[in-house]
């Protein structure tokens, strides 16, 4: 899929390839989804499901339960989270004008991590107990961090992207320190919860989580491509983008808020999952070029397919137990990332 762009290739070809890539990625997502629905610890296979529907006999109660209450919601959550992370990565890379930027740069990762840790360690002190405490705290933490950062980086109506980056590093360090204090205070059970949360997992997926994530993630997926033209122009620098007529400050605000919403919600329902946000846009840029109007929707599809595929692997590798999905994405993502860097090195130095 990673087609190298030869220098002499007609440019029209590159645009057509972007459109063709969308269809190819949709087919890939379809296969990933079928594989996810057809595999799992319960032993219900895709063949049995299809046969049941095809022969008109219907599905037995157990198969129905496995399919509709376990695998389908897990597939839905996986697609939402993967798409959210990949689109957010592409948005951040466009905004920061850097192919190595990642959604964590606007503080949403550090903030939601801290929110989750606070909920896990101090949640026991609350008079009531609810399974929603960790996701809600993670989401709120991510938003608070992003809003603080945006406020700090904005002077006289203009947001400094460099300030956003530097203040983000400071905020992440602060959140890390507070997280450290709470980890120090945590008991063994809480430590285990914390560890699993930070590695990310789709294991607890259900329809409620999918419904929780949908209103925050879906609008970002749908509207992000509208920012594509502006992000393309931003690669010339802010002044040049303004000269061409793009509302630069609005593009920055919408990108940051979109990332906070999508990544905040994704982290809330699936924990911290790394590398999807960097690797997916990178692969797509190599295959179909940098045009963000095409990159953003393609990133959503490939991100969804990649995370669903990684989750299927996570469930199969050590079945009937399962690995945290963050481990799979890191094991797959880090070497791919290194490979991309090494491949690109000659171009970057040129």
């Amino acid at each position: 899929m990673t087609v190298t762009l030869a220098a002499g290739q007609p440019e029209v070809d590159r645009r057509a390839r972007g459109a063709r890539a969308t269809w190819a990625l949709l087919v890939l997502l379809g296969f990933a989804a079928l594989a996810a629905l057809g595999s799992g610890a319960s032993g219900v296979s895709l063949g049995a499901v299809l046969l049941g529907i095809w022969s008109g006999e219907g599905l037995d109660a157990r198969t129905q339960l496995v399919l509709f209450e376990i695998r389908l919601p897990r597939l839905a959550v996986g697609m939402l989270v993967g798409a959210a992370l990949a689109v957010s990565g592409a948005l951040m890379q466009g905004l920061f004008r850097n192919p190595l930027a990642d959604p964590g740069l606007v503080g949403v990762g550090a903030g939601s991590g801290l929110g989750a840790v606070v909920a896990i360690v101090l949640g026991g002190l609350l008079p009531f107990q609810t399974p929603w405490l960790v996701p809600v705290a993670a989401f709120a933490g991510g938003w608070c961090a992003t809003l603080i950062l945006y406020r700090v980086a904005t002077r006289q109506g203009r947001t400094s992207v460099a300030m956003l980056l530097l203040a983000g590093i400071a905020l992440a360090a602060l959140a890390g320190a507070i997280t450290g204090i709470l980890i120090y205070l945590a008991d063994d059970n809480e430590l285990r919860d914390l560890t699993f949360w930070s590695m990310g997992s789709l294991a607890g997926s259900n329809w409620d989580k999918a419904v929780l994530g949908l209103p925050f993630i879906l609008p970002v997926l749908l509207f992000a491509p509208l920012l594509g033209g502006g992000l393309n122009a931003l690669s010339l620098g802010e002044a040049a983008a303004r000269h061409i007529g793009h509302p630069v400050e609005r593009i920055k605000l919408l990108s940051v808020l979109g990332v906070a919403a999508a990544v905040g919600a994704a982290t809330a329902i699936a924990g911290g999952i790394g590398f999807v946000g960097i690797v997916v846009p990178h692969l797509l840029r190599l295959a179909t070029g940098t045009d963000h109007t095409r990159l953003l929707p393609n990133a959503a599809i490939l991100g969804a397919a990649l995370l669903v595929g990684a989750d299927t692997l996570a469930r199969l590798v050590v079945a009937p137990a399962e690995l945290p999905i963050g481990i799979i994405t890191a094991i797959l993502g880090a070497p791919v990332f290194l490979w991309i860097l090494l491949r690109q090195a000659p171009l970057a130095e040129a």
Binding site: E11, P99, L236, G289, T290, D291
Partner: peptide, 9 residues
């Protein structure tokens, strides 16, 4: 230009 666009892009 921060990304490797083509000339026409």
């Amino acid at each position: 230009v921060s990304f490797p666009f083509t000339v026409l892009e």
